[in-house]
Write a protein that binds this DNA or RNA. Structure first.
Lengths: 152, 152
DNA sequence: TTCATAACCGAACATTTTTCTTTTTACTGA
DNA sequence: TCAGTAAAAAGAAAAATGTTCGGTTATGAA
């Protein structure tokens, strides 16, 4: 699917505030409500827009502790890789998991309440997964920037 | 602000789909539309809900390339730190930036189209910032998990 | 140019959000 | 235990929004 200038501006507006009414959007885009409505529906249907979510303040829900956990597997057979990935997806503390280049195989972004909870996560959940070799944790001291908004 | 069981379930529902109507939400929570409506307004007012966003498919908007860039500063005076942070916030390619423990000072999550665009970002934007010492890039091979939904 | 398709528009209709008033529930101190 | 008070919840009405429709205007290919 090809996105024109209006689509891109529309996606930018929706990323910044998905609750804007089509009326407000239409004024910013110099289009009618209907045109905006149909463009949004199309972007949803094509899968460009995957969904809509409420963003929460991590400090206010007691999940302010973020750790980047680097993971190395003991082996790299397909079985080991698939096994680890399907296990790690189910861990609710792991918000993100990437297979990466470099010394380690995976980077996990782990989100918990505090160091105590992280220790608990590591000992009772992560390191008890099969095929885990070594891990290396980098702790967040402060969040300088955190946005979901991608520029188009 | 204290969150009760209903608030937590409501936040979970809104994280998974912020476009659900209060009617649908009220059925899942065994509450009236108005009660749900007022709880949401309160959560917004208190800042627990920071906002609403549309989530996009990175592959479909040509931003599938993700890099974790570790950054070391030349010095760590307040001036250097503040200067770097205010500069990096303005870089649209940097979706996330954390001040972290360990060998490096910062971890940046950089999102661009491809390796070419990343090279361009590094040479013409990041490394031209003041106070940048050394950097170390870890490239994403595959996204195994990526969610904004925090469990409560 | 001509045809076919896609995008757009304004108006009508259907739903939802928001406000308002009343009722219920939960809590506190005598 | 029992008022008294405040917070939370409910239902109905009003305001605003989302959605559908028929018709019109651009767009692009033959």
């Amino acid at each position: 699917m090809k996105l024109d200038t209006i689509d891109k501006k529309l996606l930018e507006l929706l990323q910044n505030d998905a609750k804007q009414t089509t009326k407000v959007l239409s004024l910013q885009l110099n289009l009618s409500k209907t045109a905006v409505y149909e463009r949004i529906r199309k972007l949803e249907k094509e899968g460009v827009i995957k969904g809509y979510t409420a963003l929460l303040d991590k400090k206010k829900i007691d999940k302010a502790f973020v750790v980047f956990c680097h993971v190395r597997l003991t082996q790299h057979t397909k079985e080991h890789v698939v096994g680890f990935e399907s296990d790690v997806i189910r861990l609710e503390e792991v918000l993100e998991c990437y297979h990466v280049s470099g010394d380690y195989d995976y980077i996990l972004k782990v989100n918990v309440a505090d160091m105590q909870a992280y220790r608990n996560f590591m000992t009772s959940k992560l390191t008890s997964l099969k095929h885990i070799g070594s891990t290396h944790s980098i702790f967040m001291i402060e969040e300088v920037k955190n946005t979901t908004v991608v520029e188009l």
